[in-house]
């Protein structure tokens, strides 16, 4: 039995970088800052590779949508263990709706048994692509996964919910989105980075895939959050409790 796992990965501003709002309010400065694979996508790649190592999957295909430099992100995915990669090239910033539309085309072409992806990208923090893709494909979804088990054509997913964990069972094919606790991704080691240079990487143009990529949201402005103002100093615990009850109304 063969089962392919498709892992979409996104090139984002590295999580260590302190982002800065552009002076003209048009967005966040992304020129000349370190870019890396979205951390949740690293977790998704790791999970897919583990599924293959356990024998539950037979092939791991990484796909990225973005500028040409996104191939560096795909090379990282290959170094972490993906077997091959697909770059869908575009210079536009795409919304999850458009990304899901492009991924649907790739899913139809590749016919994976599972799409495993990060629950959200740390740049736009949308947390939507996986759910939209599942809806468009008519597949079940297991979002915010903290454990994935594949057996008998179904996936059992432990999901992070408010205050605990929910376990659901999905018929394959399905979409799973990875949460932080799913696993701790391995390093892209130097030998594996060297070997990844030789793994296949296919490039497509987003514009050729016949998907409506037009944005539905217009960015009016991007601003820095207002700085908090210094509050009041109180003299006693009793006074504090009083204020929290009557003024702030939080307890």
């Amino acid at each position: 039995m063969t089962m392919k796992v498709l892992v979409p990965v996104k090139r984002v501003v590295d999580y260590n970088v302190k982002v800065r709002v552009a002076a003209d309010g048009s967005g966040v400065e992304t020129q000349g800052v370190k870019m890396s694979m979205n951390p949740f996508d690293e977790i998704a790649i790791e999970e897919a590779v583990r599924l293959r190592e356990k024998g539950a999957a037979t092939e791991v295909v990484a796909v990225s949508i973005g500028v040409q430099a996104s191939q560096d992100t795909l090379r990282t995915a290959l170094a972490m263990g993906a077997d091959r990669a697909i770059l869908i090239r575009t210079n536009e910033t795409l919304e999850p709706l458009a990304v899901a539309g492009l991924l649907k085309i790739i899913v139809e072409r590749e016919a994976p048994g599972l799409v495993c992806m990060g629950k959200q990208a740390i740049d736009d923090d949308m947390n939507a692509t996986g759910q939209i893709l599942a809806a468009k494909l008519g597949w079940p979804q297991g979002t915010f996964a903290s454990a994935v088990t594949i057996a008998d054509g179904r996936a059992e997913i432990a999901r992070e919910i408010d205050g605990g964990t929910e376990v659901i069972s999905l018929a394959l094919p399905a979409v799973v989105t990875a949460d932080l606790r799913l696993n701790e991704p391995r390093y892209a080691s130097l030998p594996n980075i060297m070997k990844a240079r030789k793994k296949p990487l296919e490039t497509l143009d987003a514009a050729d895939l016949g998907v409506d990529l037009a944005p539905r949201l217009t960015i009016v402005s991007v601003a820095e959050p207002a700085e908090r103002k210094e509050g009041v100093k109180l003299n006693s615990a009793a006074e504090l409790v009083e204020k929290l009850k009557t003024e702030a109304k939080v307890i």
């Binding site: 809806a135 915010f144 539905r216």
Partner: peptide, 20 residues
């Protein structure tokens, strides 16, 4: 966790871009 699970899927069904 519930809202973020269901609403984007609804948006996918309606073909609209959710605003989270």
């Amino acid at each position: 966790a519930g809202g973020k699970n269901i609403l984007p899927r609804l948006a996918g069904l309606l073909d609209v871009q959710p605003i989270p």
